[in-house]
Computed example of a mutant assay.
Amino acid sequence: MKKFQNITESPSLYDNIDQWPVRQILETMNKEDQTVPLAVKKQIPQIEKLVIALTERIKSGGRLFYLGAGTSGRLGILDASEIPPTFGAPYDLVIGLIAGGDTAIRKAVESAEDDPDQSWKDMEPYHPTAKDTVVGIAASGRTPYVIGGVTRARKEGLLTACITNNPGTKLAAAVDIPIEVIVGPEFITGSTRMKSGTSAKLVLNMITTGTMIRLGRVKGNKMVDMQLTNQKLVERGTRMIVEETGLEPAEAKRLLLLYGSVRAVLDSLKNK
Rank of each mutant, 00 (worst) to 15 (best):
E110W: 01
P84A: 12
D92T: 13
L38T: 13
I137G: 02
I207K: 02
L54Y: 07
V22E: 14
G157V: 12
R106W: 03
N271D: 14
A39W: 01
A264E: 09
R74Y: 00
R193A: 08
T8R: 11
K59Y: 06
P249V: 01
G100R: 09
L26N: 09
G168R: 08
N271T: 15
V265S: 04
Q231R: 13
G220Y: 03
G88S: 04
M194N: 08
N230Y: 02
M240N: 04
E180V: 10
R23I: 12
W20R: 04
I83F: 00
N230F: 01
G73R: 01
E48P: 00
S140Q: 08
F65C: 09
V224T: 15
G101D: 11
H127T: 11
I95T: 09
S196F: 10
M206N: 01
K121W: 01
L171R: 06
Q231M: 10
E32P: 07
I163Y: 08
V183R: 03
G73I: 03
L67P: 08
P178S: 12
N6I: 02
R154N: 14
H127D: 13
R74C: 06
M226V: 07
I52F: 11
K219S: 13
K107P: 00
S196W: 09
N165T: 04
V134I: 15
R254M: 14
D225H: 15
P21H: 09
G68N: 06
S191Q: 02
D117P: 03
T198G: 13
T71E: 00
N230P: 04
P84S: 12
E244W: 00
E124D: 10
T86R: 04
L247V: 03
A108S: 14
A108P: 14
A112D: 03
T245N: 03
F187A: 10
E113G: 07
V109F: 03
T151L: 07
A89E: 01
T238Q: 08
E186T: 11
T160F: 00
S60F: 02
V135N: 01
E48T: 15
N16Q: 14
T189F: 08
E82L: 06
K155L: 13
S119A: 15
Y145W: 06
P37F: 03
P21Y: 01
E248L: 13
D132E: 08
I163M: 14
S268W: 04
V150Y: 05
S72R: 06
M29Q: 14
I7D: 07
V109C: 05
I137R: 00
I147W: 01
M29R: 05
F187G: 06
Y66D: 02
A200G: 13
K2M: 15
V135L: 11
P45C: 12
L13V: 07
D176H: 15
L75W: 01
C162G: 00
D18Y: 08
R106E: 09
I179H: 06
I7S: 07
E186Q: 11
L54M: 12
T238A: 02
K272D: 11
A250I: 11
V36Q: 09
S261L: 07
R236P: 03
